[in-house]
Amino acid sequence: MLNHDQLRQRLYRQAEELVPVLRERAAEAERLGRLPDQTLNDFQQEGFFRILQPARWGGYELEPNDFFRVQMTLAEGCMSSAWVLGVIAIHNWQLALFDDRAARDVWGEDSSVLISSSYMPVGKVERTEGGFILSGRWGFSSGCKHCDWVFLGALVPALEPGRAPDYRTFLVPRKDYQILDNWNVMGLEATGSHDILVERVFVPEYRTHRAMDGFMQDSPGNAVNDAPLYRLPFGQIFVRAVSSSAIGALQGAVEQFIAHNRARVGVNDGRKMVQDPAAQLALANAMVCVDDCRAVLLRNFDLMLQRAQEGAPLEMQERVKMRYDSSLVVQKCSTAVADLMFNSGASTIFREHGINRAFRDIHTGRAHVANHPAKYAWNLGGVAMGQDSNDFFL
């Protein structure tokens, strides 16, 4: 049996070997509007979904940095594929925070079963004996056609008048929801992020997870999943699942920019692109952007895990700063990839060009609510000057 160091090295190597394969499959994935079956099979076979899954359910219980290194590497070949992996594999971590009965429901017969999500708090909730009645329509459930369960967000009305509602994640089986096929977008086409429809289904109490428990790093699942990994704040884990693939996609665009322009000569002026200051600047900035974004990600998770191992909570300003760090990633990458595209000549306007695909995918990823930096910047500035945080998805 491999130890953790051997396992993580094997995972890194397997991810690197899949990069050219995913790049070759990218056009097919876009056409299908989902991951090709072989890509999903590859991810399952290589154990990528199990990186953060509890060992008691066949997982590896490695560290977040191990997972995000794999995700970023895969994104060099296909950001859509890496995005789906990021979102779905994080759910295998979040399920460990639920009451253990929920994990038994999902993985009791097959520990490879996958969960999609939509955390937008649009569900309508009624209390009933033993749980809740849930209804609603949720958007943007990435990879939902590959999954047999879904996490859905909703606000549970307070029991006492005047108290704030309780945000929870509800775990719902495939038989209790419909997938509404409506994913027709400019980028990340292969994520298949369709809508989910639920009409008055019963969800037992134990199949819900309170956001406040995740924020306090003290969830029901910690009774059996007691590794420091499962004491990390849920908000910090999830937001990186929808930003980190942009780092890998930009790295892939950097490599394709070099290959495309190394010997290219401008057809209008006969100038070699390697001597074009604008192209040199665009490439240099993109390379530094990748390095900066990756370094901040790894640094932040090193600190989070260190605190969890010590049993010392993160300070509020540290959480708010890390949240802002994550929100900046896709904005930075979108600027860098745009400069690469516009300094690569007219051939990059064709959809099949790798830099064009990276441009579309990264800009589409920026539309995710977690990747809008302004409100997280305001919160960081306010907290630094003594105000209370207005965000608890931290």
Rank of each mutant, 00 (worst) to 15 (best):
A374S: 11
P161K: 09
G162W: 08
L197I: 08
I51Y: 03
E255K: 12
I362E: 08
R174E: 10
V369W: 01
H4F: 12
V122W: 06
T364Q: 11
S326G: 12
L152T: 00
M79R: 14
C289M: 15
S389V: 04
E24R: 14
S243Q: 05
D388H: 13
R231S: 03
S142R: 06
V296Q: 14
A263E: 10
K145I: 15
E199V: 14
V150P: 08
A286V: 14
D148K: 15
V87R: 00
P157T: 01
I133Q: 08
R271V: 09
A259R: 10
G143W: 04
D361A: 04
R23Q: 15
E160D: 08
D218L: 13
I90K: 09
R366I: 00
S116G: 04
D5L: 14
T348E: 00
E189F: 00
W83E: 10
G187K: 00
L152P: 05
R25M: 15
V265W: 01
Q53H: 03
Q44D: 14
Q280G: 02
G153C: 03
Q14H: 05
D105F: 11
A279G: 02
L197Y: 15
A164K: 06
N3V: 09
A336F: 07
Q38N: 10
P54W: 03
N182F: 03
Q14R: 13
R137K: 12
E63H: 02
D361S: 05
V329M: 07
E205T: 11
P220N: 08
I88K: 01
W57D: 07
T169E: 11
L188P: 03
R163Y: 13
R207P: 11
L229A: 03
W138S: 02
E30C: 08
I133N: 09
G345M: 07
F215G: 06
V106W: 09
G386C: 03
V203M: 13
R262S: 14
M287A: 12
A263C: 07
I237T: 01
W378N: 09
D269F: 05
Q38L: 13
L52W: 00
D99A: 03
D291N: 15
V239N: 09
L18G: 01
P204I: 02
I133M: 03
K145D: 14
A29T: 06
K145Y: 09
D276W: 12
A55R: 15
A158W: 04
E318W: 02
A278S: 10
S243T: 11
S344C: 09
L22F: 03
A346N: 13
Q217N: 10
A253P: 06
V84W: 07
D181P: 01
W83C: 06
W83M: 14
A253F: 11
L32E: 05
V150T: 12
F49Q: 01
A377G: 14
V203Q: 09
N184M: 08
E255A: 14
S111D: 15
A15Q: 02
P173L: 06
V239L: 12
N92D: 13
H372E: 10
G381Y: 11
Q71S: 10
N182G: 02
D388G: 08
P161A: 12
V267M: 13
A284N: 11
A246K: 04
F48E: 07
S245E: 11
R262H: 11
S111F: 12
R200K: 14
Q317C: 11
Y376M: 06
R231A: 01
R262E: 14
W149P: 08
D42N: 09
D361T: 00
G86H: 00
D302V: 08
E16G: 09
A249V: 06
E109N: 13
N92A: 13
